[in-house]
């Protein structure tokens, strides 16, 4: 017969595990906030880096990150919504197309991020870029190189499952009675989907998009060779420009900076900005999900 004391020890052990995890989270966040906070200023966010990355700001990296995720969102959200609509509204569960598409999306979610980088390089840059150059630019090297276009497409492919899962979930949650009412009024299937079902699932589209953007802002491995650069004299203006990116900046600064100590303050602040951005996006996604769920179901 175990004594109550032993019992309490085990329960405490479990609690201890929770505390350890939380403590580590706090350590990471705290350390970064502590060291990154004081360098933070409006100038930091709006200026370019100077003096070998020891002073100035990280505006180009912020700009590049935002541009990247914006382009990515333009690609991934419509496609993700369409596939989600397919899963939820059109698919015949027993059909081969459905099973293959499901398998495709599930597998996509499991691909390691560096393999996406290989894909971005081998397919987008070399194959598509090469093709574009042949067809549109007479063989001149215009798109067959790292570019923000290819990077955003690569990230779109990476975050596609995130969008699909989020949108599909909310589509399925739309009550069947809405669809019934719409059909009974003589609406076609696509009218029903786009006028009734999808508007009701907007929270899923938004959260999916925001979660995708959040991941897109933080992932570095896929864009290592597909467009990101350490220092560029000017901001990206064309689709085949390279770009600076927050996460990539952190990586390079941490590992290849000639004087780590000198760049540390800038580095910490960059990490802080990246972290803050990611968390903010995640929080917004959660908030939207909570709020829109309430209004959609009100009155019932």
């Amino acid at each position: 017969m175990k004594s109550r004391f032993t019992d309490k020890i085990f329960v405490f052990l479990c609690l201890f595990a929770v505390l350890v995890v939380i403590a580590m989270l706090a350590a990471v966040l705290g350390n970064i906030t502590y060291h990154g906070w004081d360098r933070l200023s409006w100038e930091f966010i709006s200026a370019s880096p100077t003096h070998g990355m020891t002073e100035g700001g990280i505006f180009p990296a912020i700009y590049g990150t935002v541009l990247l995720v914006l382009l990515m969102a333009i690609f991934v959200v419509p496609l993700g919504v369409c596939v989600a609509i397919y899963f939820s509204e059109y698919a015949d569960r027993s059909s081969r197309l459905y099973r293959w598409t499901r398998a495709a999306v599930d597998n996509l979610a499991g691909v390691p991020s560096i393999v996406f980088g290989l894909f971005g390089l081998g397919f987008f840059v070399q194959f598509v870029g090469g093709g574009v150059d042949q067809v549109f630019f007479g063989g001149n090297l215009t798109f067959r190189q790292p570019a923000i276009l290819w990077a955003s497409l690569t990230m779109a492919v990476l975050t596609l499952p995130v969008v699909i899962i989020s949108v599909e979930e909310t589509l399925r949650a739309v009550p069947q009675s809405f669809r019934d009412a719409s059909y009974a009024l003589g609406a076609t299937k696509s009218q029903t989907i786009f006028r009734v079902v999808l508007p009701n699932a907007m929270s899923g589209v938004l959260t999916g998009g925001i979660l995708a953007v959040s991941r897109g802002a933080g992932e570095v491995a896929p864009i290592l060779f597909v467009g990101a650069a350490y220092f560029l004299p000017h901001l990206p203006t064309k689709l085949n420009d390279q770009f600076m990116q927050l996460g990539y900046h952190v990586f390079v600064l941490s590992t290849q900076s000639p004087d780590v100590e000198a760049t540390k303050p800038l580095l910490y602040s960059t990490v802080f900005v990246l972290l803050a951005l990611t968390f903010l996006l995640n929080l917004v996604a959660v908030a939207i999900r909570a709020r829109l769920r309430v209004t959609a179901g009100s009155g019932r």
């Binding site: 596939v83 393999v115 596609l160």
Partner: peptide
């Protein structure tokens, strides 16, 4: 006609999803 076109478009998108993973296998 619109309804038909949109339905085909949606089916096309699922093919795109399959194509993507196939392309990844293929090109890597």
């Amino acid at each position: 006609a619109w309804d038909w076109a949109i339905e085909k478009f949606i089916y096309l998108s699922s093919l795109v999803a399959i194509a993507i993973i196939v392309l990844i296998f293929l090109f890597v």
